[in-house]
């Protein structure tokens, strides 16, 4: 089945499995970094764990809220293959930036399970985990996307 799936397995750089593993918490449930001293938040997680404000090295994991609102959105008509989202059958994706309660914007990210006409700026959305694309070694890579909260 490896070669049978139509999604391309990009083999452009180095072997990336350790990177996927290190970033898994951020990809699945928006775990970023928080400075314990001054409370500054980072998304994605801060790799060099030094706070630029207070120069503290005291960091902890911080899980961002899984609900936010649409800050801006657009329809992507030309699939961008290396954007980190897979393309097969999804040539009219809704790409958005999502503002979380913490004030952090997640972008670019994808809105799913809705039509373009339904999307409005300020619309409440919720995090869902979907397949992003195939990893370099051919297995599936899962990560966050957003779906409208309908009440």
């Amino acid at each position: 089945m490896y070669s049978a799936f139509p999604e391309p397995a990009y083999q452009i750089a180095v072997y990336r499995e350790p990177i996927y593993w290190r970033e898994r918490k951020g990809r699945y449930r928006l775990v970023g970094s928080k400075c314990k001293k001054c409370g500054e938040l980072w998304w994605p997680r801060r790799v060099s764990e030094v706070c630029p404000n207070c120069h503290s090295r005291d960091f902890e994991e911080y899980e961002f809220s899984h609900e936010g609102e649409v800050f801006s959105f657009m329809q992507d008509s030309v699939p961008a293959p290396l954007m980190g989202m897979h393309v097969y059958g999804r040539d009219r994706r809704i790409i958005a930036s999502v503002k979380l309660k913490e004030g952090v914007c997640i972008m670019p990210t994808e809105l799913v399970d809705c039509k373009l006409e339904e999307v409005k700026e300020g619309m409440k959305v919720r995090l869902v985990v979907r397949k992003l694309r195939r990893a370099n070694n051919g297995n599936w890579l899962y990560g966050y996307m957003w779906t409208p909260i309908k009440e």
């Binding site: 897979h86 097969y88 059958g89 999804r90 869902v128 985990v129 979907r130 397949k131």
Partner: peptide, 13 residues
């Protein structure tokens, strides 16, 4: 199913 859904994403939701 959409191409970005499978058993795992359904189970997570």
């Amino acid at each position: 199913l959409q191409p970005n859904e499978d058993v795992i994403t359904l189970a997570i939701a």
